[in-house]
Design a protein around this nucleic acid. Structure first.
Length: 110
DNA sequence: GCGCTGACGCGAT
DNA sequence: CATCGCGCCAGCG
């Protein structure tokens, strides 16, 4: 029973990823209440029949597309991401980083 | 039960 | 960057 419940939580989390943005397997797992279960998210995605599910917005924590470069699935994911304005280079989506902000924070005066 | 396989992640080297 | 090792765990021989 609980198993199916978690499954639904994961699918719900994926459906909440905003158009034109991306998330990661591990992030989805955490949002679904099962941190550390990235592989479960991947498995559920691979078996989901839901057509409207924005599976293409889920990437590795590195921003890399999980499929093998050149595979049909890889190409399809790139196509879908680009169609919603997400920049994909070398099979990867650059995630918003703010290294300068972190630097400023660490060096900020008391 | 045992080993292997993943649409994974993270810290260490 | 690239590699390793280890953690995680639902299926399928």
């Amino acid at each position: 029973m609980g198993k199916n419940c978690i499954n639904r939580q994961i699918l719900a989390a994926i459906r909440r990823i905003p158009y034109g943005t991306v998330s990661a397997y591990g992030e989805i797992a955490a949002l679904a209440g099962v941190p550390g279960r990235a592989r479960l998210v991947a498995r559920i995605l691979s078996e989901s029949e839901d057509d409207g599910l924005p599976w293409h917005r889920v990437l590795r924590s590195s921003g890399q597309i999980a499929f093998a470069p050149g595979s049909a699935q890889f190409d399809e994911q790139v196509r879908r991401l680009q169609s919603e304005g997400v920049a994909v280079k070398q099979g990867r989506v650059k995630r918003d980083r703010k290294p300068l902000d972190l630097d400023a924070f660490l060096w900020a005066p008391d």
